[in-house]
Each structure stands twice: as structure tokens, then as C-alpha cells.
Amino acid sequence: MKNYFLGLAAIIIAIGAAAYTSPEVKVKPQSYTFYFTGNPLLDTDVADESKWSITPTENECEEEDNKACQIVVDDNQTFVDVNDGNKRKLLSTLGIIAVAGADGSGNGYVPKMPHTGISSSKGRP
């Protein structure tokens, strides 16, 4: 036990210090709407975070969830890309999943995430 004492003490201090210094969880994080710029017929495009842009597209989104159009995400699921004119982008670690649209015809995909971040999505008709 003597051999482990210093190491275990260090681990306990480290976890305590990390919990103490970690940023506080925001009660109500800011949310952003991202617009789909890829091909909604391709599941690979819908699942690709780089195909979602903060800049609104010309396409209008409708309530029917048939094809990917727009999503609303929390602040902590985005980042400001300093290498691209400080443009806000989706984190590539989000892990968006493309699922078949609401009509089930297989003619389009909509985004879905295993995380709780996407608070709403609207599809194209």
C-alpha cells in the first residue's frame, strides 16, 4: 500500500483540482442555426459537419422533415475558425448521423445526433 500512497494521493488531488478549475456549465447556452449546403440525397453529405454553414442558404426550410435543411446547435458544439475569417463552424467531432427523411421513401436524409445538442431541425419538402 505504501508503494501506491503517493500516486493515489496525486490522482485524488488532480481530479479535485480539475473539477475546481473546469469551466462552469452554462445554464442556458447560446444557440446557432446552421444551414445545409450539400446534397440532401447523400447521407455522407448530411453527416459531414463541413457541409453545414452559418450563412443562410437561398432554400426555404419547411416543417416536413424529408431532406436536410437546417439545424439548431448549442454554442459549445461550434467553434470560430480563425483560419477562415473567424467564421463560426460546426465541430467536426459532433458525429451527425444521416437518417432517412420522414416520408420514408429514401429520397432524402435528415440530420440526427446521438448527443443532445441539436435542439431542432427543419427539413426541405
Partner: peptide, 12 residues
């Protein structure tokens, strides 16, 4: 122990 502290803190 100091290195354990550093790595455990960084990971946590």
C-alpha cells in the same frame, strides 16, 4: 507522483 498529478489533471 508529480508526473501522475500532471497527467491525471490534464486528462480530467
Amino acid at each position: 507522483a508529480l508526473i501522475i498529478l500532471l497527467l491525471a489533471y490534464a486528462a480530467a
